[in-house]
Amino acid sequence: MSNYDQLGFVYKKEILDRSIKPGFDNLISNADKLITGLNPFCGDEVKYHINLKENILTNIYLEVEGCAIHKASSSFLSDVIINEKVLEVQSMCEEFISYFKKNNDENKQFKNDKLNIAIPLLDIKSNQIRIKCVLLSWNTMYNNLFSKNQ
């Protein structure tokens, strides 16, 4: 694989686009929940300000700093989970995270259809060091969705 192909394998256009404009940038003044994550080793940081109505994530304000992969991944996650029930969000995060833990990466279709939005991230599995950049937001959401406000 040439060097540009190798780079493009990790940094797909959607990832580069979302790293510059992650979206979900409308400020929420009355968030029902704040979920935060930080990787102190590199400074990747994410804050999800979310509104909940009848256990559905109705609104997200995303604050994200760090590398391009982390910013894009946080953006993809926001698109996946908006307007979903919290139990469904939990299940989708678990399925996404487990993809990166599996040895077999042939099957890139998820049980939860909405996760397919995040397919551009999956090839980063080939770059072991950057997997944690992909997963910080997903682990943060999965581990904290049901906890008290941070």
């Binding site: 060097n3 190798q6 940094y11 080793f41 590199c42 590398c67 391009a68």
Partner: peptide
């Protein structure tokens, strides 16, 4: 350009640097 992105980019050009703390 975050250091990790720079490191990955440079690696694609054969250049090895260190990124992080």
């Amino acid at each position: 350009v975050h250091p990790h992105d720079l490191g990955t980019f440079l690696d694609s050009k054969g250049i090895a640097i260190r990124t992080g703390h």
